[in-house]
């Protein structure tokens, strides 16, 4: 009977499975095939020799040199980065906080506008006898204006928040989070010095 030797693909697949250690999730037929292959290997010097060649190759491949980048590479890359992150994703909580604040502020603004509008309308109505309907008309106008200005105010507040975030990120990127307290202290010291200088100037003038 003619003996069927293991081909190179079968030998490599067997070595790969052993290298990756996938015995736990390997299919039953693959496991049986591996057992058959092992049985054949135990009795066939030709296939065993071929297996040894591949085993040697695997060992040498694992020992190949790994290129080394210069020690300063990580520092060099960090320095070459753009100063600000181009894209920064805000968390849902941050977005909700920004939108919530904007909504509250614009609501207050809206109420103030209504009150001003009503005061103006009442004044006009009081002065002019034939403009009895002006109060209602102006109230309507104020409402229309309000609808136009509200999205604008929300957008403006969003931009303000973005600028504040960018400044905070820039400071963190430049000095690092650990040194933020130091920077805050220096800023406070500067403010105190300016204040002292200003008050002494005022005292001299008086």
């Amino acid at each position: 009977m003619r003996v069927r030797h293991l081909n190179e693909i079968e030998i490599q697949a067997l070595l790969d499975r052993r290298a990756m250690g996938t015995a736990a999730d390997v299919a039953v037929e693959v496991y049986r095939k591996d057992l058959d292959s092992q049985e054949h290997l135990d009795n066939c010097p030709i296939c065993r020799s071929e297996m040894e060649v591949y085993r040697g190759l695997y060992q040498e491949l694992g020992r190949c040199r790994v290129p080394h980048l210069p020690r300063s590479f990580a520092r060099k890359v960090t320095f070459s980065l753009p100063p600000f992150r181009a894209k920064r994703t805000r968390t849902r909580l941050q977005l909700a906080a920004i939108w919530g604040t904007s909504l509250l502020v614009s609501l207050f603004w809206l109420l103030a506008q209504i009150n001003i509008g009503l005061v103006v309308a009442r004044s006009v109505a009081a002065v002019s006898g034939f403009l009895h309907q002006s109060e209602a008309t102006l109230s309507l106008l104020v409402a229309v204006l309000r609808l136009f200005f509200d999205p604008a105010s929300i957008w403006f507040l969003g931009q303000l928040s973005g600028v504040a975030g960018a400044v905070e990120r820039a400071l963190t990127a430049q000095v690092g989070p650990a040194n933020m307290i130091l920077v805050a202290g220096l800023v406070l010291l500067m403010i105190a010095s300016v204040d002292k200088l200003y008050s002494s100037t005022l005292r001299q003038r008086s």
Partner: peptide, 13 residues
């Protein structure tokens, strides 16, 4: 993503 340059240096290493 919060702007820590040391963390990026670590990622590079």
């Amino acid at each position: 993503l919060n702007g820590d340059p040391n963390a990026f240096k670590q990622l590079v290493k």
